[in-house]
Computed example of a mutant assay.
Amino acid sequence: MTVSVLVVDDSAFFRRRVTEILESNSQIKVIGSANDGRQAVEQAKSLRPDVITMDIEMPVMNGIDAVREIMRDAPCPILMFSSLTHEGATATLNALEAGAADFLPKKFEDVARNREEAVKTLQDRVIAIAAKPSIRRRPPARTTSPTPPPRSITPRESTRSRAFGDRTSTRSTIAREPAPREAPSTAAPVATERLTINRAYQVLAIGTSTGGPVALQKILTQLPQNFPYPIVMVQHMPAAFTKAFSQRLDGLCKIRVREAEDGDNLQPGVAYLAPGGKQMLVEGRAGAARLRIREDNSGRITYKPSVDLTFASLSKAYGGKVLGVILTGMGADGREGARMLKEQGATIWAQDEASCVVYGMPQAVASAGISTRSVSLNQMASALLTEVGYGD
Rank of each mutant, 00 (worst) to 15 (best):
E116I: 00
E116G: 13
E116M: 06
E117T: 13
A118F: 00
A118T: 09
V119A: 01
V119R: 08
V119N: 02
V119L: 09
K120C: 00
K120P: 00
L122Y: 03
Q123E: 13
Q123K: 01
Q123W: 06
Q123F: 09
D124Y: 10
D124G: 01
R125I: 11
V126T: 02
I127T: 14
A128G: 02
A128Q: 10
I129E: 07
I129M: 08
I129S: 03
A130C: 02
A131T: 03
P133W: 10
P133S: 12
P133I: 06
S134W: 10
S134R: 11
S134T: 13
I135L: 15
I135Q: 03
I135W: 02
R136H: 09
R137P: 00
R137F: 11
R137K: 14
R138P: 03
P139I: 07
R142P: 04
R142H: 02
T143Q: 14
T143N: 06
T143S: 12
T143H: 04
T144V: 13
T144Q: 04
T144M: 06
S145V: 15
P146G: 10
T147M: 12
T147C: 02
T147L: 09
P148C: 12
P149L: 13
P150N: 01
P150I: 11
R151E: 08
R151H: 13
R151G: 11
I153N: 07
I153R: 11
T154P: 01
P155Y: 09
P155D: 05
P155S: 04
P155E: 08
P155R: 06
R156S: 10
E157R: 15
S158L: 00
T159N: 14
T159R: 15
T159S: 10
T159Q: 09
R160Q: 15
R160S: 04
S161Q: 15
R162P: 07
R162N: 10
A163D: 07
F164S: 06
G165H: 14
D166I: 02
D166F: 03
R167Y: 15
T168R: 11
T168E: 05
R171L: 12
S172C: 13
S172K: 10
S172I: 13
T173A: 12
I174W: 03
A175Y: 03
A175T: 08
E177D: 10
E177S: 04
A179T: 12
R181S: 09
R181A: 14
R181D: 08
E182H: 11
E182N: 06
P184R: 05
P184E: 13
P184M: 08
S185R: 06
T186D: 05
T186G: 01
A187E: 13
A187N: 05
A188I: 04
A188N: 07
A191F: 09
A191S: 14
T192K: 07
T192W: 05
